[in-house]
């Protein structure tokens, strides 16, 4: 939990995080630090990371490989500000790269161009949840 305090999360925030996802207490500081590091590597600042963890503490239990694949997929489709995307919809971090592929495939089949699909996702990071 030391890593959470280092991010500037308050006692109340941490209490809410534990309430939302009790299993977080079983994670080691090292495990938490690794998942936080991935976010820092995509230019999430402490504020973004706080926002993400308060909304979606389950992110800390996600497999690092799955998260890296997700980020690679988003870069592949030319999403530039991935940090802001996750800040706007922290639950996107629960998605796997295959889900992004599925979403894009479905939209392409409906006749949309990739550029438009990506633009819609950046404008409304919840759109993948709505479809």
């Amino acid at each position: 939990m030391k890593e959470l305090y280092n991010l500037g999360l308050s006692e109340i925030d941490i209490k809410n995080i534990i309430e939302t996802y009790p299993e977080i207490k079983d994670l080691t500081d090292e495990e938490i630090a690794k998942n936080i590091e991935i976010l820092k590597n995509i230019n999430c600042n402490d504020k973004h990371i706080r926002n993400i963890l308060i909304a979606n503490p389950y992110y800390l239990n996600r497999s690092i490989n799955d998260i890296k694949s997700l980020i690679m997929k988003l870069k592949e489709i030319n999403i530039v500000n991935i940090n802001l995307l996750f800040d706007s919809n922290p639950f996107l971090l629960n998605r796997d790269s295959y889900e992004i592929d599925e979403y894009i495939k479905k939209e392409l089949e409906e006749g949309k161009k990739l550029e438009i699909i990506v633009d819609e996702l950046e404008s409304n990071p919840y759109i993948i949840d709505e479809k």
Partner: peptide
Amino acid sequence: SIYSYSIEN
């Protein structure tokens, strides 16, 4: 999703 945002946000 307002309910998921931190109050800081």
